[in-house]
């Protein structure tokens, strides 16, 4: 049952040391504010899960929150590589990071299996791909009907999923639209889900009947954080802050510059700064 609460309380209540945590968003609706709150809270030994770890995971890894990353594409979208992730993988700084690497198809199937309550996902994938040789969680299963050999990966069942969405209604039902990505599956696969939203509306009356709505009883906590997906975007609210992605490439290139940037923009800040950050990025509504 969804409870509305400040982001500080939502993260403190639902994210614990050692958790397997998915902060999902496929380029769109990335839950940056929630990830920054986790960094401020100083949680440790996380297994971070995400199809497309980008800037926020670079930040969490660079701050030493994670011991392992489960992922399928780790890059700064449109810019290049993740330099804090590279430092962790190549040099063990600030701590070594174990990798469990998949393809997008595998991760998408694994989330779906988690949401469906299945132990694993079967799909036609990884044929000839090198990942099958370096990731012991990529195995094979034979179709009992046709004999076709398919790839199998374990279901993803995070302890907690964090997503950002456009809006909630007063009851705590959550609406996601635009590029919906993997968020619905991540929420339904996870044991607990925390959602940040741009705004709360009275109800969802009059909206299109097929919009992606997560019923309030699938969500543990909702926090209202306008701009909470910055520097990614929220369809219908604000656009992607492309210069911020370019700037990150410079910030993340140096450990000291990174530490100073994190102190100013994350450790000494709070969820309230996100509304200011998207002030110049609005779209016509």
């Amino acid at each position: 049952m969804a409870r509305f609460m400040p982001l500080e309380e939502a993260v403190a209540t639902h994210l614990k040391d050692g958790d397997t945590a998915a902060f999902e968003g496929f380029t769109h609706l990335i839950p940056t504010a929630a990830a920054h709150q986790a960094i401020r809270q100083g949680v440790s030994d996380l297994v971070l899960v995400r199809m497309t770890p980008d800037i926020v995971y670079d930040q969490m890894i660079g701050m030493g929150l994670a011991r392992k990353l489960v992922f399928s594409y780790a890059g700064n979208p449109g810019v290049g590589l993740l330099r804090r992730l590279r430092d962790a993988v190549e040099n063990g700084w600030p701590r070594p990071l174990a990798l469990e690497e998949h393809s997008h198809a595998a991760m998408a199937n694994a989330y779906e299996a988690g949401a469906a309550g299945l132990p694993f996902a079967a799909f036609r994938g990884y044929r000839g791909a090198g990942l099958a040789a370096v990731n012991p969680n990529i195995r094979q299963v034979t179709c009992p009907f046709t004999g076709e050999v398919l790839a199998a990966v374990p279901a993803l069942r995070p302890d907690v999923a964090f997503i950002h969405a456009q809006k909630a209604d007063r009851k705590g039902n959550v609406l996601v639209e635009g590029i919906v990505g993997i968020q619905k599956e991540a929420v339904l696969a996870a044991r607990r889900a925390v959602v940040t939203v741009e705004e709360v509306v009275e109800d969802f009356a009059g909206l299109h009947p097929n919009l992606c709505v997560l019923p309030h009883w699938t969500v543990a906590a909702i926090s209202v954080v306008p701009g909470g997906a910055h520097p990614s975007y929220t369809h219908g609210y604000y656009e992607r802050d492309n210069p911020a992605y370019l700037e990150w490439d410079r910030v993340a290139a140096d450990r000291e510059v990174f530490a100073a940037w994190m102190k100013t923009h994350v450790l000494d800040a709070g969820p309230g700064v996100f509304a200011e950050r998207v002030a110049g990025l609005g779209v016509e509504r």
Binding site: T52, F71, S72, Y73, A74, G75, L81, L82, L85, R86, V89, E90, E101, S103, H104, A105, F123, R124, G125, Y126, R127, G128, A129, G130, L131, V134
Partner: peptide, 19 residues
Amino acid sequence: YARPTVRLPGGGGAPEIAS
């Protein structure tokens, strides 16, 4: 793979796009 000189972003959708 275990001790890369440069860790690139990874495959994303490519392994199954290619197959």
